[in-house]
Amino acid sequence: METKIQSACETCEHFNRDGLKKLGVRTDNFDFVVALAGNPNTGKSTVFNALTGLRQHTGNWPGKTVTRAEGGFEYNTKKYKLVDLPGTYSLMSTSEDEEAARDFILFGKPDVTVIVVDANRLERNLNLVLQILEITDKAVLCLNLMDEAKRNDVEIDVRTLSRDLGIPVVPASARFNRGIPELIQTISEIASGKMVCKPHRIKSVPENIEKAVKTLTVEIEKEFPNISNSRWIAFRLLEGDKKIIEALRKGEFV
């Protein structure tokens, strides 16, 4: 690995600056799909712009992005298609405005999901993070807005967080391009399979629900032995999610 020390990136010795090319809207022939998910107003579109060089609308207003946007970048000769999703509070509701994000994370089968969270409001953001981790095990947490967290005297133990969640955590300030190189490097390692995550699974589920979920997961896994998110499907079936039921019928999970 050629390591040029760049001023913007002194801390991350692995990042290969020359290997990065922002591709803008060109997303043909990509090798990997990367999704950007997270609560509203956490800086997803800002991260997206930093990675692709595009000018997606950003704004200090929850719900700024309403349809998904695509862009691309190339890193170490691999091409990535990046998908900016509207912010959501949860993947479990059925409201239409959250549909785009929900469907893409579940059915778009991204190779890596970048979960952008607000470091100042970690607890509330974890609601969505934990749900996404039930669905996919190829995820990275982008702990955005670190500059504000610092100003507000919020300190986060990144290593413990990463251990608890079972996925890599990258602190960042997307607006000032801080943490972006590390994020790219981490994305590439997860995409290529160099880094393997072991994500957190929701624990404190009441007994009666856990029992029902177990019964269902067993049945689902019997039918689809290679499925990794049978528990999530069980959750959704118990909720009566029409989309999931249809997808199951059509075998879209295999």
Binding site: L122, E123, R124, L126, N127, V129, L130, V154, E155, I156, D157, V158, T160, L161, D164, L165, H200, I202, K203, S204
Partner: peptide, 11 residues
Amino acid sequence: DAADIVKDTVR
């Protein structure tokens, strides 16, 4: 779960 994780990691 979120509260548990936050307790360990955020000051």
